[in-house]
Every structure is written in C-alpha cells, then in structure tokens.
Design a protein around this nucleic acid. Structure first.
Lengths: 129, 129
DNA sequence: TTAAAAATAATAATAATTATCAATATTAAT
DNA sequence: ATTAATATTGATAATTATTATTATTTTTAA
C-alpha cells in the first residue's frame, strides 16, 4: 500500500492554509507558497490539497463559481458566499444536525451529513453602495 | 437591449428537463436532445441552460463533482447527493428559512438565501451491499 | 416581403484539474 | 553512514467542463 512520506511542500501548504481564514483557491495557495518554494509546481499544490482533504486535515469547499476553495478549519461550520465579490466567509452558527433527521423522514437512503452555503451581500460590498 | 426570441431548441431543452427528475448534466441534455435535433451544438445547450437559469425558469445545481446539474423544478427545495453513485435526488423537506436568520445573528452582511446539499448513501446503493 | 436582430452550428479558446514520468527526496534496513 | 525501496516532486501533457467567436440561419417586427 501507499505509505505516506513527509514532504516539506505539503507541510508548507497546510501551514499556509492554517494562517488564512479566507478560504483560498489552489491557485492562490500556489502563488503564495512560491515565495517559499519558487520551483513548486501547480500540480504539486493540487495533489497535496487533494491528499490533505482525503486525510481529513483540510476541507474542500465547492462554491460553484470559480475554482474550489480550501479551509484548514475542519470542524463542521457554515459559509457565506458573497454574490458580488464571491468572497467566502465563515459564519458563527452552531451545527444544525437536526436537519439531517428532518431530511431523512421521507427518504429511503442514509443521510450522514450536509453542507449549507448562505448567499447574499457581504459587509464590504454592502458598504460600497 | 437584447430582446428574447423564440427558439425551438430552447423549448425542447426546457421540455426535456421538465420530463426528468434526475437533474441531468448539460452533456446528458445534449445527448438526449440530439434525438430530436441531430445537429444541435453542445454550445447551444450550454447557452440555453445558462439563459433559462438566468431567467429563473430552471435551477442550476453545482455538486462539486462532475458538471453542473439542471432542474426544471424552480421552487426552493433540497437535494441529496449520493457519495457512491453521485445521483442527485429531491428531498421532501419544507424550506428551512429560519436558518437564514440564525446565520445572520453575528454577521455583518445581508443573507438572502441558502442552499443545502445532504450527503450519504442513496437507497439503491444501500441495497447493493 | 423585407430588414433587423437574435439564435444557431461549428469550432476555437479558456479555466480548472488530473495524469504521466523521469528525477529527487524521504525513510527504513543494512 | 550507505544503500535500497518507494513516495514525492517539477515539468508538462492531457482531460473535463464551459465559454467565446463568427458566419449562417431563424425569428419577428415593420
């Protein structure tokens, strides 16, 4: 089997994500991590983001607009996505686990979780007009 | 301004979507609509799906795995996405509008809506093992 | 019937991501 | 410490999903 080996690039990617709370894209990770590793390849960034997500060490957030976002905060929480600037912002909202049971009532399959994205206009964009 | 003109292709695309409840991708729409319009272009399918979504006549569903899905049922409802077969299934769950207010409590921006996707194993995939 | 404008089919281009592979780095065993 | 095995990398090609371009066709209003 594939046993995991340490890599400095992977550590740097994870540490970079932990230093941010704005849910950067793979490309943003790439351009920033290049300051420390000028020769790092975009493929290496994608590979490690994907691996870290599979390991459960980071979260992948699909916004449906532009590339996927990544988040080092792995405990279940909710995101707001601004309709104007597309920024992704953490929300202070306790987990709504009861809605899994509500959704299960008339459903034959097995629901184990949910993701919710809230939409609207963020504070910055509201101030602009 | 751009005034809308009728097109047989657009009508056929909308009617095809209304005949289905499995939230097909643009490519699935394309291969099916080709039975009626053998020369239709994939670009035409994308253009019309996008236009219909902008007009609010259909919904675009981003699943984060594979291409976007489309749904002729435009009233707010919830979807289940199977972790195994990736099928998208409508859920019978009343709208959880109160969670918009809950999410707004400690948030500076303006929340106008949300989308929730439930995850797990669908009935078919559960039966398989 | 004609003319203007929108829509189309065909195709090229783009964005985001994944795959390939020879060279390098890590790790476990000597 | 040295070696051997193998995971990881950087470079790059390929793929997937989607959008843009443009000459031709269709729709619609005059």
């Amino acid at each position: 089997m594939q046993t995991l080996k340490y890599s400095r690039q992977r550590e740097a990617i994870k540490e970079f994500l932990m230093s941010r709370n704005d849910h950067p894209t793979a490309d943003t990770v790439y351009t920033n991590i290049r300051q420390e590793f000028p020769n790092i390849s975009l493929g290496t960034v994608y590979r490690n983001l994907s691996l870290l997500a599979d390991l459960g060490e980071i979260l992948k957030i699909s916004t449906g607009d532009g590339g996927d976002r990544f988040d080092a905060n792995t405990k279940h929480h909710y995101h707001f996505i601004c309709n104007e600037c597309n920024s992704v912002i953490d929300l202070d909202l306790k987990s709504l686990d009861h809605i899994n049971e509500l959704a299960s009532v008339n459903f034959g399959g097995n629901i184990i979780g949910h993701t919710t994205h809230f939409y609207g206009t963020c504070e910055n964009c509201t101030k602009k007009h």
